[in-house]
Computed example of a mutant assay.
Amino acid sequence: MGMQINTNLAANNTYRNLASTQTDMAKSLERLSSGLRINRAADDAAGLAISEGLKSQVGGLTVASRNAQDGISVIQTAEGSLSEVQTILQRVRDLAVQAGNDSNNAKSRDAITTEVKQLTTELTRISASTNFNGTQLLDGSKASLSFQVGANADSSSQIQVSLTGANVKGIAAALTVGSAGAVSAVDTPTLVTGTASFSVTDAAGGVSTVTTASLGAAGSMKTVQSVADALNKDTSFKSKLTASVDADNKLVVSSNTGGIVVGGATAGTHASAGTGFTLSTAGAAGALDFSTAAGAAAALTAVDTQITAVSTARADMGAAQNRFESVIRNLAVSKENLTAAGSRIRDTDMAEEMVKYTRSSILSQAGTAMLAQANQSNQGVLTLLR
C-alpha cells in the first residue's frame, strides 16, 4: 500500500464509524431521558401507528368508565326518589284500607281524602324536582337515556336505560282524588218516580254503561239516601252500578264492575229519564274516592297497580346499575391490557437501552482515540522528506 497524505483513508473510516457511534449514543440518550422507544415516526413507523391506535382506545376507555360512573349516579338519583314515591304510595294504600271501613264518618273520610290529596301533590312535586344535571328523570319527558360505555361508535358501546316505568308525573295524574262516579243532584226526593236511566263511562276501558232502574211512586222517597237505597235494590242497576250519597248530600253513581268511573257532562254522563233528577257536572272525577267503602276498594286496586309499576321500575334500575358496575370492571381490565400492549411497543426497555448506551459510549471513546491515531499515521512521510 502506498503512502498518501491528501486522503487519509484510515482517518475517514474511523471518523465514519465514530459518527455512527455518536448517532447511536444520541438516540440512546434520547430514549433513556424520555422513557420512550418511539420518539418520532422515523424510530418505528409501524409501531407508531399501532401504538397511537392503542392510545386512542385507552383514552376512550378512560372516558367510558367515567360515563358509566355517571350512569350509576343518574340511576341512584332516580331510584332514590322512586323509593320515596313508593313510601308515599304505601301510605296512600294504608289510607285506602282505612277508608274501606264503614266505621268512618263523613269527617273521617274527608280527613283521609285531604291527606291523600297532599300526598299526590307531593308526587307531582317529586316528578318536577328530580333531575340530574338539568335532565328531568321522573316527569315522563324522556322514555330512556343513552350512555356511552365503550371507546367506539358501535351499538355495543352504548347502554339504554328505560325511564318508561318511572313516570311519577303520570302516576300522580292517575291517582287524582275525587268522586269516582257521576254526580247528580236530587233536589226533591219526594218527586222521584218512574224509570231512571244512567250512563257512566269507564275510564279504563272507555266503555259506557247504560243502566235503568225502576223506582216507586212519587212521594215514596223522603231523602237522597232513600233514593240511593232504592237504586241499589234494583236488580238491573245493582248488577253494574252502585249508588251512594256524598258529603254534599248528592247522589253518586259509580261502577262496581271494575275500572275507574269518570263523572261529568261529556265523559261519564249521568242522565235521567225519571222525574226528580237534575244533571250535575259539579262532581270531581278521580281514581281515588274515599267517600264510600266501594270507592276505597277501587282506590286500593288503582294504588296497587301503581305500586307494582314503581317496583318494576326500581327493579329495572337496580339491574341497570349492576350492569354498569360490571361494565366498569370490564373497562378497567381492558384498559390495563391495552395500556400494557402500548407500553411494550412504545416504551423504552431501560435495561436494554442502557446496555446499548454503554456500548456506544465505549465505542465513542475508542473511536475518538483511534481517530487521533489515524490522524498521526501519515507522520512517517516527514522522515522521507528530511
Score class of each variant (00 low, 15 high):
2 G>W: 10
4 Q>K: 13
4 Q>I: 12
9 L>Y: 14
36 L>W: 04
43 D>G: 05
44 D>V: 07
54 L>T: 09
55 K>W: 12
57 Q>T: 10
57 Q>L: 06
58 V>C: 01
60 G>A: 09
72 I>W: 01
75 I>Q: 05
83 S>M: 03
84 E>G: 03
84 E>L: 06
89 L>V: 11
90 Q>E: 08
95 L>V: 01
102 D>L: 00
120 T>G: 03
123 L>G: 08
126 I>A: 07
129 S>D: 15
143 A>G: 08
148 Q>R: 11
168 V>K: 03
171 I>D: 02
182 A>H: 08
189 P>Q: 02
197 S>P: 00
197 S>W: 02
198 F>H: 02
201 T>F: 09
204 A>K: 02
204 A>G: 01
219 G>L: 00
229 D>S: 11
230 A>C: 11
234 D>F: 12
234 D>C: 12
235 T>D: 10
239 S>N: 15
239 S>I: 05
241 L>Q: 12
242 T>V: 13
247 A>F: 15
250 K>H: 10
261 V>H: 14
262 V>N: 04
264 G>Y: 11
274 G>I: 03
275 T>H: 10
280 S>F: 12
284 A>L: 06
286 G>W: 04
290 F>S: 13
295 G>F: 05
297 A>T: 07
314 R>E: 06
321 Q>P: 02
327 V>F: 09
327 V>D: 04
340 A>R: 12
341 A>D: 06
341 A>P: 01
346 R>H: 04
347 D>G: 00
347 D>R: 06
348 T>I: 06
349 D>L: 01
350 M>S: 11
351 A>E: 03
353 E>P: 01
353 E>Q: 15
355 V>R: 03
356 K>G: 00
361 S>I: 09
363 L>C: 08
367 G>P: 08
368 T>A: 15
373 Q>C: 07
386 R>V: 01
386 R>I: 02
